[in-house]
């Protein structure tokens, strides 16, 4: 879906904290802006000068491979200067507070902070207190907006639209920031959204967000065009939300046998990292309808778009025609 060129261009504002506060137009803008950036990664020289001279700090208080690397690639392919800070081995270990760390970074005259933090609201907390652009790379159970955006882009690539699709998010919704960002993004773009998982992993009042709830994956598969299968966060399962991983797989696993009974082919997404044989079966993950690796590729384009737009760029002027040098 391409925006009408005559309509006014919405801006993203200072920060990207979540998809809940964004308008439909703002989300469309990011997805449309991501399109030309996809091509940059296909070149022999994967670099454009768009953010030359900008300094970006990737501040990760939680382990991350995919998201951190995708941000770093996006930044480098836009020619920004980047610094990575992980909580372990930094002044955070010496008890420095989030806001002091950020203010110190800002004193070094940085332009943007990409932050991943175990506490919900941490990105907003930071954004309220520093002048740099803040991009939320996942805060607690709250939101992971760039993941939501790359999921949207991947679905749109496949269907040419989001509007009118039926998307079910499966698994541990309670602890999932990916689920919340997907719910907001999909609803704003006109999809029908459902969640499916054991009731003990669905947060209270989830229906009030405007989503349907399925107790069993068979019902979800019968209904949906797209399944977004979430990672079962093994480290959180100490809390006794489910009896065992084996039982979870047996009742809630997205398996080929279950998909074989679907009335139509379902597009399969997974934000990674996967627990094969827990929430998803390898035949599904590696099957013809899985777009799990396209998600990873799109993750770079979407993040390039977000960085570019927050730096003040407009889609018309996305300077991707000329390569570096």
């Amino acid at each position: 879906m391409i925006r009408d060129a005559s309509s006014p261009v919405p801006s993203l504002g200072k920060d990207l904290l979540g998809l809940e506060p964004l308008s439909t137009d703002q989300i469309q803008l990011i997805l449309d802006t991501a399109e030309p950036f996809k091509e940059v990664s296909e070149r022999a020289i994967k670099k454009v000068p768009t953010l030359r001279g900008k300094t970006i700090v990737n501040l990760f208080y939680e382990a991350s491979t995919r998201t951190r690397i995708a941000f770093e690639f996006a930044e480098k392919r836009l020619s920004a200067d980047t610094v990575n800070i992980a909580a372990a081995g930094s002044s955070v270990e010496k008890g420095e507070s989030l806001v002091d760390t950020a203010r110190n970074l800002e004193a070094m005259r940085i332009d943007m902070v990409v932050v991943r933090h175990p506490s919900s609201g941490a990105a907003a907390f930071l954004a309220d207190r520093i002048a740099s652009n803040v991009i939320n790379a996942g805060d607690g159970w709250h939101e992971h907006p760039t993941q939501g955006l790359l999921d949207l882009l991947t679905i749109r690539d496949k269907f040419g639209r989001i509007d009118g699709l039926k998307v079910c998010i499966c698994g541990d919704i309670l602890h999932s920031r990916v689920a919340r960002s997907n719910i907001w993004g999909l609803l704003k773009l006109g999809a029908a959204v459902a969640v499916c998982g054991p009731r003990s992993l669905l947060p209270r009042g989830i229906e009030e967000l405007g989503v349907q709830v399925f107790g069993r994956p068979e019902e979800a598969i019968e209904w949906a065009d797209v399944l977004n299968v979430l990672r079962l966060q093994l480290e959180r399962m100490q809390g006794g939300y489910i009896p065992s991983l084996g039982e979870f797989y047996r009742v809630f696993g997205i398996t080929q046998e279950r998909l074989d009974r679907a009335p139509r082919d379902l597009l399969i997404l997974h934000p990674g990292p996967m627990n094969r044989g827990v929430e998803i079966d390898s035949r599904v993950a590696d099957g013809p309808h899985s777009v799990i690796l396209q998600q990873v590729t799109n993750g770079i384009a979407v993040r390039m778009a977000v960085l570019y737009l927050l730096a003040g760029g407009t889609p018309e002027r996305a300077d991707v025609s000329k390569g570096e040098g």
Partner: peptide
């Protein structure tokens, strides 16, 4: 624990 905790991603006290 309610719809606000669900939206904010905070752990609820029922």
């Amino acid at each position: 624990e309610g719809v606000v905790s669900t939206r904010l991603g905070l752990k609820g006290i029922p």
